[in-house]
Amino acid sequence: MRNSSAIAHAKPRGLLGGSFSTVGRGALDLITEIGAAGLLLWRILLAMRKLPRSMPLLIEQMRRIGVESLPLVMITSIFTGAVTAVQAAYQLKEFVPKIYLGTAIYKSVVIELGPVLTALVVGGRVSASIAAELGTMRVTEQIDAMDAMAIEPVRYLVMPRMLAGLIMLPILTVFADVLAIGGGFVVANLSLDVSPKTFIAGMKLFFFAHDVLGGLFKAFVFGGIIALMGCTAGLRTVGGAVGVGRAATRAVVASCVLILVSDYVLATLLFKVIFGE
């Protein structure tokens, strides 16, 4: 966040020291943010008892987080599938039979690219917008007003967003998986000289249901991270317009970092420990 300006203004001798302390401060901010997110998560769990009352709010958030992200996810995933096909064909050429192109695309999309890329693009869009919205409500005292009328902001604002994230990310990922494989399929067909039959045979070759389930479980976790980090940053906003801008940045940074870190943790857990041979 602050790296570039700190480095630009630092004197040559202080350059390394300066950037180390900037990185240190950034990491410390991130850890504080994650701690706050943990506390918020606990309060969301406590608010779950009042879920029925919040159903209309949940549906509204599912529309805003899920449906409105669909065009972005569609474009991203079609091209991701297409480029995966081109790159895989290039890498495999001369060593590996054509049939494995379908296998490679299907595996990489379902396990990794679908959930992670969807989470990253949706995370950028959704966590920033949640943080900006809640941040504005915080600095204009709308959240205080809500508290003052005994409507808990965690139940009214945070819980619906969190649940919508958890529900919608796997659904978006299903769309992304289908479209990315479709994109790869079309490219394989039209420009890589792999027939539909060969491509599909390759997909079937090592088809495991737990690849798909593992990928969707990751999407579920990522959905929670996106909404939670957006809400945490929003609620912790201080100051005016500048504060709201900072909150949006913090939300995007925190959700992207956490998505990638938890992707590694989940990959190890799911595909080495749970599904591993």
Partner: peptide, 29 residues
């Protein structure tokens, strides 16, 4: 707080709701 009403200095209206929804929110919720 159910027995309290507060008028904030900056009004603090919910800008995602109409005037009527603002006034009705505590009763509805």
């Amino acid at each position: 707080r159910m027995n309290f009403g507060m008028v904030f200095q900056g009004a603090a209206l919910f800008d995602s709701m109409t005037v009527g929804q603002n006034v009705g929110l505590p009763l509805r919720e």
